[in-house]
Structures are given as structure tokens and as C-alpha cells.
Design a protein around this nucleic acid. Structure first.
Length: 465
DNA sequence: TTTTGAGTTGTTCGA
DNA sequence: GTCGAACAACTCAAA
């Protein structure tokens, strides 16, 4: 009766988990393991919001396994040392996991694989939470795609992988020498997480529920509603996807089986962007730090200005849509995608602060912080990324608000001091400094039109690529 | 090898 | 008020 370890990393689910299914098929006994090893993530250890989510997702997974008669074995420390110890003491002959694609994790996993094999253990790494492995898609020239549209055409032409049912082990090994989740110290010491708790249900069940809600309600009006930050028009699945509580393959399958609805193509495209981001990170592992387009290495960013950055971070810029977004993120760990583009454009173009400052703040405050998505998104807005927006596409935060938050419902939800004003005032904040000051709201920290022109001028000074 | 068509999400200006 | 053009060239992907 052979025993296998199954590692849970960003695969906090039981259904549609190829490595788990393989372990259960090949071994009579399966020991589910979570090793908490934030050092392995290098400079990209999870931020506070992400840790909050992780805590609750682990609790949810623990409960699921307990209901099946198993137990999630939790330990803390160096992954290789922990897994080796556990494999020896449980008599396991094999270790299973699913792949991750961040540079630091790839390095850690190859070391782990070598160490385990040196001990005579069989190691099986399986595809992770993507449609296709990053090396499975290439241009005709054999190069990774750098432009989204051809990438997307190719991806859609491939048959989607079939989803797997929930795995059932013949016997779940239930050891009693693991740590309780609470010992990992993932929850904040001071209680700032009530907004998160009121907004999210981490875990596989929460993910499935969110998907069902989206497929039933929002998906058919997705094209119309997805741009309106005051509405629940987007899937809100990003954090569930990041932690592997649900996978693109499962979402695809669910939407296909509800095909009576409007064409989900526009939403699937968003999953395509997630896929593109992960493939790019795999092929260009330097991009979390460095410009994808080296021409931008010479871009004249403004000098780092902590006070300026802090006003942006705290939602005190005086530009209502920007502040609403930053406060939504601070409060709920999430921000509507259109508003993400607006606040990012404002930081990198109007304030001309380096995109890395924004990427780092998002990393620390988003529950869905994901190295691939975060890197692509920030470089795309900043203009230096793969298939990026042309630099001259600079979002005007007032115009965006008037267009997508016409009645200012979103702005007023997150900036309650403006709730009594007519929508025209926040949408033309530069015209109403006195009315805004009377509400205790700051005057715009920059003039949008002038700072836009300065950003364009800075960009024109860049030497040709 | 060379050529050709195309490229997430915007804004502003002038007719 | 509405509409189309300009904003820049460049690089990518595929024929």
C-alpha cells in the first residue's frame, strides 16, 4: 500500500486538480500537504491582503478534507527540508504537485525535485492552473508570442483541456503532527480586515458560488456592465483564480454548458489575457523588475516622491475617481478593472512616478495580487509592456468618471464625504475647489490636462527604439 | 526572404 | 452635438 504526498500551493481545491487526481489514481494513500515557505518567493512574498485570503482559503480546504476523513498537514519553513522530513516519516514513495510559473518558484521547484529524487522519491509535476503550458504555444517561428491577438487566435483554435471531477483518495492519511493554520501568522495583528471579510468568501466553494452568480446574472450583459465600476458586472474571480480555487478550464467548461447565454467570448478574452500574462512571465522572467520594452529604460520618470506616492496610495489625490478606486482597494482588497487602469495611468502619466511603485502597492494591497497579471497590467498601462497601449493613450480620470460612473454612484460609495454633491462636481473637480474643500476633500494635486501634456513631452524625448 | 496587415480598454481637435 | 482624424512609428506574426 503505497503512500504519496500531494502538495497544495496555489491549488487550494479538490476538483479539477490533475496532480491530485494522478496521485489518487496511482497510490492507495494520499497525504495532503501545505508547506508555508514565503522566503521561496524572494522579493515577491505575499502581501497582507493576499495572506488574509490565503489564511481563509487554507481553513476552507482543511474543512473540505476533514469532511472526507482526511487532514491537511501544515508545516512552516524551507519547502525542501519540510517535504523530505514528511516523506521519510510517512514512508511516502512519491510526491505530486502542480507547476507554478514565477521565476523564483521555478528555481525553488527544480531544487526541490532534485533533492527529492536524490532521496529515491518519485516526483511528478503536473500542469498548473493555465489552459496550456507556456511552452506549448509559439509563433510559427518558434518564438513566444509578444502580441495578444495572434496569441489569442492560436489559443482559441486549440481544444480546451477537459476538466477533471473531484479527486477521491482510497485513503487520506490524517497525521496529527501538523500545525494549525493560525500559527502561520497570516492574519493581520490589528483588525483592518472587516471590509475583506464582508466582501469575499475564499475557498473552493466560494469560487464555485461566485462563478455561478456570474454565469447566471452578469455574464449575459458582460459587454455592457463590465465597464461600470458601480455595478457587479465583472466576474470577481481573480483572487479565486490566483489561489487555484478554480481554474480557467473549469470556468470554460461551466460557461460552455450554459451556452444559452450570450456569447461569453468577451469574458473568455479576459481569461486569455491572464493566460498571456503567465506565458509572458515564464518567457520573460525579468519583467517584474525591468521594462519589457528596453526603449523605456531611458524614460524620464519624475524623482521618487514619497509624499506624492502616499497621497495616491491613501486616496487623497483630489481626483475623485482615482481616490475612489484606491479606497475601494484599501477597504476590500480589490479594485474594478477599469478603475485600475485609470489609477495606474494617473500614477505613471500624470504623476510620472515609476510603474514599479504602483505595482508594489497593488502587490501589497490586492487579494488577487498575482505576479504575472500585475506585471503585465502595469507595464501595459505605462506603455513599456508587451502589446502595450500606445503611450499617448492617457486616461483622463474626469472623462472616464463621467463616461463610466455617470451618476457618481461609485465615487460616492467610496468617498462618502462627497455623497451629497451633484455628480457634476466630482466629474469637474478642478472647477469646484471651494465646494470640495467644504466637504473636507483635497484639491486636485495636479492639473490633469497640463500633466498629460508634460507626460507626452517626456515620451517624445525618448530616443527611437 | 520579403512583404503586408495589424495592433485591449483613449483623448483631443477641428470640421 | 457629432464625427473622423491625428496622435508615431514600430514591431510582430504570418502569408
Amino acid at each position: 500500500m503505497s503512500t504519496a504526498l500531494i502538495l497544495f500551493r496555489r491549488d487550494l481545491r479538490l476538483a479539477g486538480y490533475p496532480a491530485l487526481s494522478a496521485a489518487c489514481a496511482a497510490h492507495a494513500s494520499v497525504l495532503p500537504v501545505y508547506v508555508h515557505d514565503p522566503d521561496a518567493d524572494g522579493t515577491w512574498a505575499p502581501g497582507a491582503a493576499s495572506r488574509w485570503w490565503l489564511h481563509h482559503s487554507l481553513v476552507a480546504l482543511e474543512r473540505q478534507l476533514r469532511e472526507l476523513g482526511g487532514r491537511l498537514h501544515i508545516s512552516h519553513g524551507d519547502t525542501t527540508a519540510q517535504v523530505l522530513t514528511l516523506a521519510r516519516s510517512s514512508g511516502a514513495t512519491a510526491v505530486y504537485w502542480s507547476r507554478r510559473y514565477e521565476p523564483a518558484t521555478i528555481a525553488r521547484d527544480s531544487a526541490l525535485k532534485a533533492a527529492l529524487r536524490a532521496e529515491g522519491l518519485a516526483v511528478h509535476s503536473h500542469p498548473g492552473n493555465l489552459w496550456y503550458e507556456p511552452w506549448a504555444l509559439a509563433t510559427d517561428g518558434g518564438q513566444p508570442y509578444r502580441v495578444f491577438t495572434p496569441f489569442w487566435r492560436r489559443l482559441r483554435a486549440l481544444p480546451p483541456p477537459a476538466p477533471l471531477p473531484p479527486a477521491r483518495a482510497q485513503h487520506w492519511v490524517a497525521r496529527d503532527d501538523g500545525l494549525p493554520v493560525s500559527v502561520l501568522g497570516l492574519l493581520p495583528r490589528i483588525c483592518w480586515d472587516s471590509g475583506l471579510a464582508a466582501t469575499w468568501i475564499p475557498g473552493e466553494a466560494g469560487a464555485q458560488e461566485q462563478l455561478a452568480i456570474f454565469a447566471d446574472e452578469a455574464a449575459k450583459d458582460y459587454a455592457k456592465l463590465r465597464d461600470l465600476p458601480a455595478r457587479r458586472g465583472t466576474s470577481r474571480l481573480s483572487a479565486h483564480l490566483h489561489f487555484g480555487e478554480i481554474t480557467p478550464v473549469q470556468i470554460l467548461d461551466h460557461l460552455r454548458r450554459r451556452a444559452a447565454q450570450a456569447d461569453p467570448g468577451l469574458f473568455l478574452r479576459e481569461l486569455g489575457w491572464r493566460e498571456f500574462a503567465h506565458h509572458l512571465l515564464y518567457h520573460f522572467p525579468h519583467t517584474p523588475q525591468a521594462n519589457f520594452n528596453p526603449r523605456f529604460d531611458a524614460f524620464p520618470w519624475n524623482a521618487d516622491a514619497p509624499a506624492v506616492l502616499e497621497r495616491w496610495q491613501r486616496g487623497r489625490t483630489g481626483i475623485p475617481l482615482v481616490d475612489a478606486g484606491m479606497r475601494e482597494m484599501w477597504h476590500t482588497g480589490w479594485m474594478h478593472n477599469r478603475v485600475r487602469m485609470v489609477v495606474a495611468s494617473f500614477l505613471t502619466k500624470n504623476l510620472r512616478q515609476h510603474w514599479r511603485h504602483g505595482a508594489r502597492w497593488f502587490w501589497d494591497t490586492l487579494v488577487d495580487a498575482d505576479l504575472a497579471n500585475n506585471t503585465l497590467g502595469w507595464q501595459w498601462v505605462a506603455g513599456c509592456g508587451a502589446d502595450a497601449a500606445p503611450y499617448f493613450r492617457i486616461f483622463n480620470p474626469y472623462l472616464q468618471a463621467a463616461r463610466f460612473d455617470r451618476d457618481a454612484a461609485y465615487i460616492k460609495r467610496w468617498i462618502p464625504e462627497l455623497a451629497a454633491l451633484p455628480a457634476k462636481v466630482p466629474h469637474e473637480a478642478w472647477k469646484h475647489p471651494a465646494a470640495l474643500a467644504a466637504c473636507g476633500y483635497p484639491t486636485p494635486m495636479v492639473e490633469v490636462a497640463a500633466s498629460r501634456d508634460m507626460a507626452l513631452a517626456a515620451w517624445r524625448r525618448l530616443p527611437a527604439g
